[in-house]
Design a protein around this nucleic acid. Sequence first.
DNA 1: TGACACCGATGTGTGCAGACATCAAAACTC
DNA 2: GAGTTTTGATGTCTGCACACATCGGTGTCA
Lengths: 241, 241
Amino acid sequence: MTSSLHHRAIENLGTRIISGELPAGHVMLAEHLEDELKVSRSVIREAVRVLQSLGLVETTKRVGIRVLPASRWNPFDPQVIRWRLASDARGAQLRSLAELRAAVEPAAAELAAQNAPAPLRLELVDVAYAMRDAGHNGEVPRFLELDIQFHSLLLSGSGNEMFANLMGQVAETLTGRTVHGLMPDHPHEAALQWHVDLAEAIARGDAASARETSDRIMRRTMSRMSDTWTEQPRVFIPVRR
Amino acid sequence: MTSSLHHRAIENLGTRIISGELPAGHVMLAEHLEDELKVSRSVIREAVRVLQSLGLVETTKRVGIRVLPASRWNPFDPQVIRWRLASDARGAQLRSLAELRAAVEPAAAELAAQNAPAPLRLELVDVAYAMRDAGHNGEVPRFLELDIQFHSLLLSGSGNEMFANLMGQVAETLTGRTVHGLMPDHPHEAALQWHVDLAEAIARGDAASARETSDRIMRRTMSRMSDTWTEQPRVFIPVRR
DNA sequence: TGACACCGATGTGTGCAGACATCAAAACTC
DNA sequence: GAGTTTTGATGTCTGCACACATCGGTGTCA
């Protein structure tokens, strides 16, 4: 199913647009795409509709299918994020996600302390202790898994569906970090304790402490990652009026 | 263009799914939708493909088009947000957006102070003073317009395309606030000055001050809005493993 | 002669109808 | 109950008619 013709057409065009191979303003003809991808019109048409809804292209009669500039792309769409992570802009995408995460997690921690269901709070505490153990023992893969689970639970516990939806993308940044060898074999001792403190603050409903502790974790994470992407150029999206 | 059959089909199905009229698990047949909406198969298929990419439905052979639970919807998609704002969940959606905004804006302010291009900083200061004047004179519509412009510039100036993309949604929360008569004729005097302080902190590159001032503005905004939606139920998205 | 408004030709997406292919659920056989 | 066949829905392909934005030619007027 994931390899349906329609899906492959989306993947093909999406990656090529986001990689810059098909630059903004480039105009394609549906007929030409049929020949190139060796698929029928219906497949092309359905793919173009989806790309249109992602803001990657627009269609105009008598003109064709025009590639839109990056400022029109939907930067929150999981597919767009995936395509950007696979492009030259990978560094910039990781930085954007990390900045978003750093902004959101302390707020999510505060909300979780106020609203999270009891079982989730307990699980959060369990995972935090398991994380600390795995960290002490240098079990890197298990630590990564628990780390993702911890932050997923935290975002989910906020009761804000937008925060919760960032889970998937957060997982990307965390795995991306280890893959790039940015994680030491033994995670920072203090950071491990901070996770435990955060979980317990949420468990006892201490919103202010939860926010502050989460903020401390995020600041440390950001400071450790920032030097990786300082050379990434920033793109300023113009204000649409 | 916006009233193409395919677009109308998306709108029809999208609103009905998000309103709950078509509940999660409900199965439709493409053929049935053709009859109901009086359009051809290609229109239905293209619409379903878009809804599929938004996580609203999935298609299975031999079964049909199945409506997915809200936990699968893409909560950052502008269309989904618009449909939720038009549904019973309007309050919950406004709260989610406000919480997101409250989390992001201080981070955006900090980044803007570090990275924003010089012309944008100047414009931000101009707009802040214009806001203060409009607020003093009780020009509510003009104040709202400037308020949106101010926060759009701020998010745009962060150089984070995800932050910048929140502009449109932020505008929704701000306009939604005035439409609901939650705005006094004369905005809070201190808040007006805070906007000026924030703009000037960004202009001189004082990141810490910018973040703190923005945080103060957000906290006040949240505290003024929170009592409107305390009765809205929170939805906890389960963690996908 | 030159500038301008008009108007039809052209090419492209949009929508329609029907056919066959594919494949997974459901029914059936042993 | 395991394996096989049937069935019915989506997936894919194709030919056609239509809508309509763009472009170039034609005619009118100054």
